[in-house]
Design a protein around this nucleic acid. Structure first.
Lengths: 262, 262
DNA sequence: CGTCGCCTTGATGAACATCAAGGAAAGTGG
DNA sequence: CCACTTTCCTTGATGTTCATCAAGGCGACG
């Protein structure tokens, strides 16, 4: 009794080349994934996709993707680089709520209210795809499978937020920092990079703000971790020297929930 | 070219009586809302609804609705009572992630993984509606508007989680407790109760756990708030004596984001 | 070279955890 | 009904973690 859904996969097989370099790792976890035509030869064609476009200009360090209070026009997915999500309270203080890295989506928490409840600022040169939310809704009506996928992603975001809570709930700041570093490592690993040697995109100050400790405390802890031969850090480049030791400091079991926070 | 959507409102007008007492305040924010037939005379009829049913037996204090690790079968909406969401870490400690009160949904963060990442325990005698997730998906395919509604709710949950983070990010435990109490007040108000006199459903121990402070600290702060004429507390019954004073202690502006945390 | 931003290190003090003891209310069994 | 335990909460004394204040190092950049 129902009309058949448009045959999505067939379209893809003719129009979208999975081998396309630009579609690779950053897109694996993207919410539009199979519907996306950015970076493939058919970008210009207006068809069943068209919701997703690459933001033409990359953001520079410190630049805002959107401001707290802006109305929600787009959702964003990070192609490369990283972004901090921050909340400005009325008495002028800033609180970093999240760090987003490539493949992650921004704005999902602002759908209900229709406006951005916090700001997004690039930590480094960052390129994003943007996705008109109105068009996304239309697209979803056409392809209910996309709805399911979106659902899964948004649900995952809740899970992620709650897991982050667990990290912050660790009372010792030492535990929190260790968990944070392990989480960063896990994220780099997820993106196909080395998990035991990477560059932190954020400043010490940002880390301190995010972990709710004083800047000086982060500094001290980092030197302590180095003294204890857990890490080797030169400015923002990190090498994990003793993974198990870090796990122990973090007080977490290898494959527990906290092993992947952000 | 597309089949018409089933005319939902028509069905409702004949089958569902909005005046039904059992459908009142607890259901206002429920995710199924208009699709729900619990508590109306047609409950037994298998029709386009049927995803949502009332859990026959109410939970008693301390009873588990589900356990961490259980596979996700249902989403739940609280009809009356309250529930704490808690995470058990491998070294045996418990961390309360959330308190849920009537009208709120449980399990949304567990959709992606397909299993409950934390447990849900009743704080008092609690009645819930349960909602088979598989059926919900089917229902959504039939009524895309339901999808949009669900989406909004899940997005709101992210927003809510992030706002909770802001509360926890307040460094002084005094601020956190004040924010917590104001939040409880706001929730009672939302449910149609008095906002300046209510009963806390959770123990001091639970509050302490949730706010990441020692039990003794909560005790001391409460007596301090009473001494300062901000509150009058007898066991679990709270009366807010000085609302503005509490706001000031919490360090928040009347209608700011933190005014409604949970 | 000087200035600025970012980070580090040291000294001090405050907030809060921990340890310890006891009170009040509620349940339990006689 | 009364002892009895148990749970939950309160209050006090002490110690530790971490914020704050202060100073200086170091690379980047003009």
């Amino acid at each position: 009794m129902r009309l058949e859904q448009p045959k999505l996969k067939k379209h893809i097989s003719t129009r979208y080349q999975p081998g396309d370099a630009k579609q690779s790792s950053a897109c694996r976890s993207c919410l539009l994934k199979v519907h996306c035509q950015t970076g493939n030869p058919y970008t210009g064609v207006s068809g069943y996709t068209g919701g997703m476009t690459i933001q033409p200009r990359a953001l520079q360090r410190g630049e805002y993707l959107y401001h707290q209070g802006d109305s929600l026009q787009y959702l964003y997915v990070i192609r490369s680089g990283s972004i901090k999500q921050l909340f400005n309270s009325w008495h002028g203080t800033e609180q970093i709520i999240n760090f987003y890295m490539r493949g992650q989506s921004l704005g999902l928490g602002d759908i209900q209210s229709g406006s951005h409840g916090s700001s997004a600022v690039a930590l480094e040169t960052t390129s994003v795809c943007k996705l008109n939310y109105g068009k996304l809704q239309t697209l979803c009506k056409q392809y209910p499978d996309l709805y399911d996928r979106l659902f899964s992603i948004v649900s995952g975001e809740i899970y992620h937020e709650q897991t982050k809570m667990l990290m912050h709930g660790q009372k010792q700041s030492e535990e929190r920092l260790a968990t944070f570093i392990l989480d960063m490592a896990a994220r780099y690993k997820n993106n196909g990079y080395s998990f035991n040697a990477f560059n932190l995109p954020m400043s010490r100050h940002d880390i301190a703000n995010f972990l709710w400790v004083a800047d000086e405390t982060i500094s001290r802890l980092i030197t302590k971790f180095c003294d204890d031969k857990l890490l080797e850090i030169d400015k923002r480049s990190v090498r994990i020297a003793d993974y198990d030791g870090l796990l122990q400091k973090a007080g977490i079991q290898p494959r527990s929930r906290l092993a992947y926070v952000n």
